[in-house]
Design a protein around this nucleic acid. Structure first.
Length: 575
DNA sequence: GCCGTTTTCGGCCCGACTGTTTTCAGTCG
């Protein structure tokens, strides 16, 4: 049973308890463990085997016993018993916006409605308004919400959300009446997928900002419009929230709207213990009857008030960053400017759009010290893989460009296919001629976990393979990762000295953040590469750096932050 | 249900907007 599957059980327990109007703090305890499981950087089963469940924050005796029961028996009696008491349709109703546990329980008790169909029918026939507390507007919103649930993509990849967020920020800036403005939420935390986009601004004319925001050309519907907060729907049911606050509150609001929710709760709890109240308007201390603001203009004020150093947004997931900050052990996260080279670049020799020379010039302008030209290998016909016949010709061209440009080291590389049996798509006599070898899986994605894991482990054993490219093969929103045992893979990477790639291609972001953190903890070498197929895509390195930062990496964990000679020495296994 | 340099019991983050009310509960983030 995976973490996510176990999380779903606890989430359902929380939903049911809420509908049954159980103790809200009990509900919160189950929600908390759900979040914990969804973002845990390792399998809960491993922690269970070590007998360390009780060490997890938010896991006490009762929940530890429940996790144990699920792992040992594959089910949870408590959960099944709860489910018997509640029609499954009620849980589905909770997914409709504006339908919370109270409303669900209300229509169930008063009208006996227990399925989505019955709910839709009652709303259409205007029967909901007969219930005290519900009205015509509620009927309308429920019908709208049901439509939305059907149409809406759950989450969109970071790069799509980033384009949206940056565009709206720009439009509001162009209106000329905002002072400070920033996007917040999971976009700012650089999560790989995004639900809603959150934007924060200060302005002397909040009402006018709201008018402009709610009448932007891309607005499909205005969900809410107030004096300080508005929400709109744009394409594909994507929601964008805007908050406007006073300048003196900007930092507090930025922290609050950046989240994560779990992180915010931790910080506010620390505040409570110090006798402080922290909200989106600032940090306040009680002075007799009055409250006095002691900070909030800058985000740093919030952390300072609870005695912590600044925690970068990418770490704010309650994955242990608060504890690390308290111990003074926050990582010094790797920064974009520290990247010295990009090893994963395609050219016209395979399916790239530019020549080796064009790529080298672009990389030199970017200030890189070295790049690796890593075209596809012979079997990958769809991507114009380099045949054995042109293999050496390509190397000669790369060497020539390298000679021509003393400011940048241009390495002859390849992205060689790992064939289904784990052998490589070029013989060793060919690979030994190259400076850098990335090995990747591009075929037979549907192998069983064991054979896929062995396949990649075998590739790692080849002495010429330096890096495993996009190690899980996922395409965000398109293709699932192939089935592999990541823990085994990382162990083998550490053992063989093979580096794992953080592929920065925005649809990949592969390894992902939790795997990166696992890799770091296991002493695996990591390399960030763009997989660029066009020189403009060299800019995508930032997505890889963000993943690295979310995986707690420092520059010393990332090989391509090193100067060339050091980088090259560390990369090669046998040196 | 969890948790403890104020506590093993009594707390548990905080506020905006909407809809249905006539002062507020529910939902959301």
């Amino acid at each position: 049973m995976t973490n996510v599957e176990i999380a779903r059980i606890f989430s359902e327990i929380a939903d049911i308890l809420e509908i049954k109007e159980e103790n809200p703090f009990k509900v919160r305890a189950y929600r908390k463990v759900t979040q914990l499981l969804e973002s845990l950087p390792q399998e809960i089963e491993e922690i269970y085997k070590k007998g360390e469940l009780y060490k997890l924050p938010g896991v006490g005796q009762s929940i530890a016993e429940k996790i144990t029961e699920i792992i040992e028996t594959g089910r949870l009696k408590y959960h099944q018993k709860l489910k018997e008491g509640v029609p499954p349709g009620l849980l589905e109703m909770l997914r409709i916006p504006d339908m919370g546990p109270k409303t669900v329980a209300l229509v169930y008790k008063k009208l006996g409605i227990s399925t989505l169909k019955e709910l839709e029918k009652a709303a259409r026939e205007k029967k909901l308004r007969n219930v005290y507390g519900l009205g015509p507007k509620t009927e309308e919103n429920i019908l709208k919400g049901m439509k939305l649930v059907k149409e809406r993509k759950e989450r969109i990849p970071l790069h799509e959300a980033l384009v949206l967020a940056e565009d709206i920020v720009k439009k509001l800036q162009e209106a000329g009446i905002v002072e400070r403005i920033a996007y917040c939420g999971s976009v700012r935390r650089r999560r790989e997928t995004i639900g809603d986009v959150d934007i924060l601004a200060t302005s002397p004319h909040p009402a006018r900002v709201m008018d402009i925001f709610t009448s932007l050309p891309r607005v499909e519907e205005v969900l809410a419009k107030g004096s300080t907060k508005s929400s709109i729907l744009v394409g594909e049911g994507r929601q964008v929230d805007l908050r406007v606050v006073e300048q003196e509150s900007f930092g507090a609001a930025l922290h609050y709207f950046t989240g994560s929710k779990a992180h915010n709760i931790r910080i506010r709890e620390l505040g409570v213990r110090k006798g402080l109240k922290i909200n989106e308007y600032g940090v306040f201390v009680k002075k007799g009857e009055k409250e006095e603001r002691i900070g909030g203009r800058e985000e740093e004020d919030i952390f300072q008030s609870v005695g912590l150093p600044y925690i970068p947004p990418e770490l704010r997931e309650d994955w242990g960053e608060v504890e690390a900050a308290q111990r003074g052990e926050l990582p010094r996260l790797v920064r974009m400017e520290e990247i010295k080279g990009d090893l994963h670049i395609h050219t016209m020799w395979s399916d790239g759009a530019n020549t080796v020379r064009e790529v080298a010039i672009a990389a030199r302008e970017k200030g890189y010290e070295y790049i690796g030209i890593s075209d596809h290998s012979q079997s990958l016909k769809v991507a114009g893989g380099v045949s054995k016949d042109s293999f050496f010709q390509r190397i000669r061209e790369i060497r020539a460009v390298d000679e021509e440009m003393p400011e940048i080291k241009v390495l002859a590389g390849t992205e060689v296919d790992i064939l289904p049996d784990g052998t490589l798509d070029y013989p060793d006599e060919f690979l030994r001629e190259l400076d850098v070898v990335i090995a990747s899986v591009h075929s037979n994605f549907k192998q069983e976990e064991e054979s896929m894991t062995k396949r990649i482990m075998k590739a790692m054993e080849n002495p010429f393979v330096d890096i495993i490219g996009h190690p899980t093969g996922r395409l965000l929103g398109e293709r699932e990762a192939y089935r592999i045992n990541m823990e085994k893979l990382l162990h083998h990477a550490a053992k063989t000295g093979t580096a794992m790639e953080i592929n920065a291609y925005p649809d990949r972001m592969d390894l992902k953040d939790t795997h990166v953190r696992m890799a770091k903890d296991m002493g695996v070498k990591l390399v960030i590469g763009t997989d660029a197929h066009h020189l403009l895509q060299l800019e995508w390195i930032k997505y890889g750096v963000w993943v690295a930062r979310r995986g707690w990496l420092e520059s010393k964990d990332v090989l391509n932050t090193l100067d060339f000679p050091d980088f090259f020495t560390r990369l090669k296994k046998r040196s």
